[in-house]
């Protein structure tokens, strides 16, 4: 591994880039949601409040850390960085400039699935470690929700892979150049993916594990200061990660419809395509989550098992037949 690769992984287009993207995403989320609800949203830190998430992060890190008496101290204090690591590692498999990601292997998607499962597992561990009543209930809901959305999510991720005949994300992106986007090939898979990612992200209508009017902050209730800052950052990073994943798997990622073969600024154009698609998916998720009420856990499980799982199976069948 040479120095350039280290810079790529840690700075651009790797970790640092995605963390900043996460901050921007959180700001966009707050701002658009606010505007759709008739409010202003963040407005003080930076131009139009764009630095508000950053300010929140640093403010949280500087606060006093309260560790509950009966918590599992080791997991409680050291879990959040691991929780953060899950989506952070996932992002390096996603092509941001050029059609190849920094790291690319023939088995990318398997690793991505592991990352998604690991992040839920970490959330569960963190919640149990904090040993609160709200956390315990929340973990029950989290696990049930995970059990229901995982299958549709998995099948939805697999269908573009089948369409491309490739398990590597870079390979899937390359298969979509020349405007051969998989959203037209596997539209149902795309829809299922978006709905399942709402559940993975714990956003309405599936913000059941941290439903604030029922169980306070759910599994995050006992967290404060630095661990909370990490947890919050991880949430926005997962947001970006899943949007980037959706963009890469279904919308062609860095591959654009036009301007695919100019010599100058080719990397810039790739990056621009990527960002446009990620933000487009982001806006779609913002809109959906703003427009819906939270469902009950049994209703969510019902929806995933009786509607989305058959749909994603159907999609997979269609894709296999078409190939």
């Amino acid at each position: 591994m040479d120095a350039l690769e280290v810079v790529e992984i840690l700075v651009f287009p790797g970790l640092t880039f995605f963390v900043w993207l996460a901050f921007v995403f959180e700001w966009l989320d707050r701002k658009t949601t606010a505007r759709m609800q008739g409010r202003i949203g963040p407005m003080l830190a930076g131009p139009r409040g764009i630095l508000q998430p950053v300010a929140d992060f640093f403010k949280l890190t500087s606060k006093e850390e309260i560790v509950p008496q009966f918590s599992d101290k080791l997991v409680f204090e050291w879990g959040p960085p691991f929780f953060f690591a899950a989506p952070a590692i996932g992002t390096i498999f996603i092509p941001v400039v050029g059609l190849n990601a920094i790291v690319s292997s023939p088995y990318d998607l398997l690793f991505i699935l592991f990352v998604l499962a690991f992040s839920t597992l970490m959330a569960g561990m963190l919640g149990y470690a904090s040993a609160g009543r709200f956390s315990t209930i929340s973990i029950g809901r989290l696990v049930l929700q995970y059990a229901s959305f995982e299958i549709p999510l998995l099948l939805a991720i697999v269908s573009p892979a089948v369409a491309a005949g490739n398990l590597s994300i870079s390979g899937i992106v390359q298969a979509q150049s020349n405007f051969h986007w998989f959203v037209f090939v596997v539209p149902i898979g795309f829809a299922v993916f978006i709905v399942s990612s709402l559940a993975e992200l714990e956003k309405p209508p599936f913000d059941i594990p941290d439903a604030k009017t029922e169980i306070a902050a759910g599994w995050m209730t006992e967290f404060s200061a630095r661990p909370l800052a990490y947890v919050k950052l991880t949430e926005s990073l997962s947001y970006v990660f899943l949007s980037a994943l959706a963009a890469s798997l279904f919308l062609g990622g860095t591959a654009g419809p036009v301007l695919t073969n100019v010599t100058i600024l080719q990397d810039g154009i790739y990056l621009a395509y990527f960002l446009i698609k990620v933000f487009a998916i982001g806006f779609a998720i913002f809109a959906i989550k703003t427009a819906l009420a939270r469902v009950r856990i049994n209703q969510a499980a019902n929806l995933f098992w009786t509607v989305l799982t058959p749909l994603s199976l159907l999609q997979l069948g269609i894709v296999i037949l078409l190939r």
Partner: peptide, 16 residues
């Protein structure tokens, strides 16, 4: 009711 059911948009609109 919007707020309790997690439908914050309804909450903001009606209060507006």
């Amino acid at each position: 009711v919007g707020y309790w059911t997690g439908f914050d948009t309804l909450f903001m609109w009606i209060w507006k």
